[in-house]
Amino acid sequence: MTTNSDTGSVFTARKFTDWATVKEALMSKKIGASFILAPMAMQLVADGVPVKIVYLGHRDGSAIVVGKDSNIQTFEDLRGKVVAVPNRFANQNLLLRKMMRERGMPFDSIETRDVPPPEHPTALQAGAVDAFIVGEPFCAKAEMDGVGRVLYFTKDIWPGFISCVLVVHDDFIREQPELVSELVSGISKSGLWLDESMDNRFDASHVVGTHFYFQKPQLLQWVLSRPVDRVTYGDLKPLRENFDEIMDLAFDTGILPRRLAFEEYVDTSFVPVGERKAWGLEALSLTEEAARLRLEPNVAPDLEKPTLPQKTPR
């Protein structure tokens, strides 16, 4: 997010620490747009809050994490355990229910507990929960701190997993569509840039970690490189089939009171025309090992900067 876009518009990022405050700020128009949980956006619309999902924040980028020395090895081992989720209206919560349903497990076979995302690693360490499912970088933090072990990346159990989406208040869509379009275009370009090279990802880790997230850049580097498809940014158009699946799951499991039509809560008119993945992740994959070594300089103190192959547009 920049405070000085190409055309002179100002996009100011405002950090929140819990979802309830984000929701309130959006409802009262203290903010015009926000990244929020996908099912929460649906719930807002169901409650009559005039917002629309206009773009995705990322794909994948979540994981189920268990204690480092836990004997939990499969999803079925979570039966009878306590698992932290970011919020009742989080797609991570729906994913747990989807997996339970697929395995014939009743929904009460796992106890879920709402825990603010930054507190997930400490809750696991303190033994308050047996596992957690949340967006990055808190899964990586548990790994880096030696507290947790990834049981499943969401990319492996729900490919293209959607966690956060960009919602915009209807008033801004109506009154300042060019500004919304500019914001979406900027996010799209940033995503393609991130998926272009490992150097770009590491540069972004420094900027975001230092100026926005106030987290160690090394933590974000871990997220963006181990493995490289842990979180992806190349395909951020809100697709009907993805949201229909989330909607069905949310309604069937009692999270949402009624089904909403895709058009009621999504506006795809701001998606950049002709959007597609400009580069694959192949260029990043080739340097994954190098990226791992860069995070652990003691392993290869004289590691040279990795060189990328010639990129070919797909």
Binding site: M1, F16, D18, P118, V134, P137
Partner: peptide, 8 residues
């Protein structure tokens, strides 16, 4: 435009 986010 003010854009809200959580560090996640």
């Amino acid at each position: 435009l003010l854009v809200g986010f959580l560090p996640v």
